[in-house]
Simulated assay, not measured.
Amino acid sequence: MKPKNEWLTVLVAGVTLTACGGAWGDGGDTLTPAASTIVTRVPAATYAANSSEALVYETLNAERLQCGFGLLAQNARLDQAAIAHLNYLAQNNAVGHFQEPGKAKFTGVYLDDRVAASGYDRKQVGETVSTVPPTENAEYAVRFILSAPYHALVALHGLRDIGLALGPSTVGTQTLEMVFGLAKDSVHQDAGKVLTYPCEGSAGVFAARGAEVPTPFPAEADAIWGQPILVKGASDLRVAAASITGPGGPVVIKALYGDGQATDPNAWCTAGAACVIPAALRANTTYTATVSGTNAGAGFTSTFRFRTGAK
């Protein structure tokens, strides 16, 4: 199945391009808890010190590690694919996941093609493309992705490698291109337990945002939401209840998408992933979240505090 919209975050498995929705594995999630395969040490990245790419890499890995999703290793071939696609977007004043044959800097129509052209021998790859104002820094660009439920599902997926590029593309904007990979002989990162993002101690998450394409609220024009709580578990994950409380009391939950709950209109939050999407939150405020349900045949409850940033 091809993505319906070229802004759609892409997760590719096998030899064909598929919009895999909220799927977290390539057959890796099971109904029983697995031994952890989370990566906690990777070789030092070679991005230039204090560069935007270094800040993107460090910010994303810090968020992933804190919440138990594991570290991503820089991969030169995925860097090559990311840089090539960013160059294509800049050359053609475009934004999106696809390229058109015959246009300048063309390296492949689909992500799968472009990763193959870079020489990465993959089992699975994924991509996020995010356009942000030129006045914002690299940390903002990462947090912008993590506050969009569908993009965040890819950025927090259990792949092991990453390549990235950040630079100007369309007039007056900058684009962060991130390519994620799992090499052919590797296994997914799997904690063997329920994980959430944000998690205990997360800070600086977005208080409010909108404008993800596709939108998690297609019936609502110009929808705005607060930092989503993404829940990862085994393939039988069921979130029965979720709440967020702040200084003013309970926060309205705009949507709880997942198996056994409301159906995600874009079919991303399913099959081992659930998305708790609140109304807009207050900036610079601490919230307490509680998520409960069943996972791998057993009950779970997760209670944690997180803090919004200035945005």
Score class of each variant (00 low, 15 high):
residue 129 V to Q: 10
residue 12 V to C: 14
residue 226 G to P: 09
residue 49 A to Y: 15
residue 66 Q to M: 15
residue 238 R to A: 12
residue 254 K to Y: 06
residue 209 R to I: 11
residue 308 T to D: 12
residue 176 L to D: 10
residue 163 G to L: 12
residue 104 A to P: 08
residue 173 T to R: 02
residue 298 A to G: 04
residue 252 V to D: 09
residue 235 S to G: 04
residue 208 A to Q: 09
residue 170 T to M: 12
residue 215 T to N: 07
residue 311 K to E: 04
residue 77 R to H: 01
residue 117 A to M: 04
residue 290 T to Q: 08
residue 110 Y to M: 03
residue 248 G to H: 09
residue 200 E to F: 06
residue 283 A to W: 07
residue 308 T to F: 15
residue 284 N to Q: 01
residue 54 A to Y: 15
residue 284 N to K: 08
residue 272 G to E: 08
residue 11 L to A: 05
residue 226 G to T: 03
residue 220 E to S: 02
residue 225 W to Q: 02
residue 219 A to T: 00
residue 29 D to L: 10
residue 33 P to S: 09
residue 257 Y to I: 10
residue 29 D to M: 13
residue 92 N to R: 06
residue 92 N to I: 06
residue 309 G to L: 12
residue 14 G to V: 00
residue 81 A to H: 09
residue 251 V to D: 10
residue 191 A to V: 13
residue 163 G to N: 10
residue 76 A to H: 03
residue 45 A to S: 05
residue 277 I to H: 07
residue 13 A to H: 06
residue 186 S to I: 02
residue 17 L to A: 00
residue 204 G to S: 00
residue 156 L to M: 09
residue 127 E to V: 00
residue 110 Y to A: 00
residue 100 E to K: 06
residue 97 H to I: 03
residue 190 D to H: 14
residue 194 V to M: 11
residue 284 N to P: 14
residue 6 E to N: 12
residue 9 T to R: 14
residue 293 G to N: 15
residue 141 A to P: 04
residue 217 F to E: 08
residue 82 A to C: 10
residue 51 S to Q: 12
residue 306 F to H: 10
residue 178 M to H: 03
residue 68 G to W: 03
residue 60 L to E: 10
residue 183 A to W: 05
residue 19 A to W: 04
residue 231 V to G: 11
residue 71 L to Q: 12
residue 210 G to Q: 04
residue 43 P to E: 01
residue 47 Y to R: 09
residue 28 G to L: 03
residue 8 L to Y: 02
residue 23 A to P: 02
residue 307 R to K: 15
residue 81 A to V: 03
residue 109 V to K: 14
residue 118 S to G: 05
residue 224 I to W: 02
residue 287 Y to L: 02
residue 10 V to Y: 11
residue 139 E to I: 13
residue 218 P to Y: 05
residue 173 T to V: 03
residue 247 P to L: 14
residue 203 A to Q: 13
residue 12 V to A: 13
residue 16 T to S: 01
residue 3 P to R: 08
residue 277 I to S: 07
residue 283 A to R: 14
residue 65 L to M: 13
residue 218 P to R: 01
residue 99 Q to H: 00
residue 280 A to V: 07
residue 256 L to G: 14
residue 274 A to T: 11
residue 266 N to Q: 02
residue 17 L to R: 00
residue 210 G to L: 12
residue 265 P to M: 05
residue 240 A to K: 15
residue 65 L to I: 08
residue 59 T to R: 11
residue 297 G to P: 07
residue 154 V to W: 06
residue 109 V to E: 12
residue 112 D to M: 13
residue 177 E to C: 15
residue 212 E to P: 06
residue 222 D to N: 01
residue 18 T to G: 05
residue 58 E to A: 01
residue 252 V to L: 14
residue 239 V to K: 10
residue 231 V to Y: 07
residue 22 G to S: 01
residue 15 V to G: 07
residue 183 A to K: 01
residue 117 A to S: 04
residue 258 G to Y: 02
residue 26 D to P: 08
residue 27 G to T: 13
residue 219 A to Y: 02
residue 67 C to M: 14
residue 138 A to G: 08
residue 33 P to W: 09
residue 8 L to Q: 11
residue 145 I to L: 11
residue 109 V to G: 04
residue 256 L to A: 10
residue 53 E to F: 14
residue 60 L to H: 03
residue 56 V to D: 08
residue 78 L to S: 05
residue 174 Q to N: 10
residue 196 T to K: 14
residue 91 Q to E: 05
residue 136 E to Q: 13
residue 67 C to A: 14
residue 274 A to M: 12
residue 120 Y to W: 00
